[in-house]
């Protein structure tokens, strides 16, 4: 058992700019805390594929496509700029806002609650 969840001050809230991140160690786990569009997200820095440092990968957009069965046309565009986390080892894509892997149903990065208290980023783990 990992014991009781504790609160960990990671940094001052203004230490991370929008679209930036910090990598920190909590209870022996490497965790990446992101700030994006006013929200904070904390994920384990361990790709579900082969354990690559996914939390250190680029934040980009990705290709999104849909097929209209009525017209037979494909609508394809580059979107979600800044919201897609890419593992630097093999390019596995994760949705920064949910931790969900874009290519594997049911695969989600472990996440941890993040709150801002008195101007500090607090991760509960």
């Amino acid at each position: 058992m990992s014991g009781t969840a504790e609160r960990h001050v990671v940094a001052d809230a203004d230490e991370i700019d929008n679209g930036e991140r910090i990598v920190t160690q909590i209870k022996g786990r490497e965790i990446t805390v992101f700030r994006y569009d006013g929200d904070y997200y904390a994920y384990l820095n361990w790709c579900a594929h082969q354990g690559g440092p996914c939390g250190e990968g680029t934040l980009t957009g990705t290709s999104i496509a849909s097929y209209d069965r009525e017209t037979g046309e494909v609508d394809s565009y580059w979107g979600r700029e800044g919201e897609i986390l890419n593992c630097p080892w093999h390019g596995w894509e994760y949705d920064l806002t949910t931790g969900d892997c874009l290519s594997r149903t049911g695969v989600t990065l472990p996440s941890y609650p993040v709150e801002i208290e008195d101007g500090e980023i607090v991760v509960t783990l």
Partner: peptide, 14 residues
């Protein structure tokens, strides 16, 4: 010559 393909997904893969 290795060809001009997008091996690194536009930098997504380091």
């Amino acid at each position: 010559h290795r060809g001009g393909w997008n091996r690194y997904m536009g930098g997504k893969i380091e």
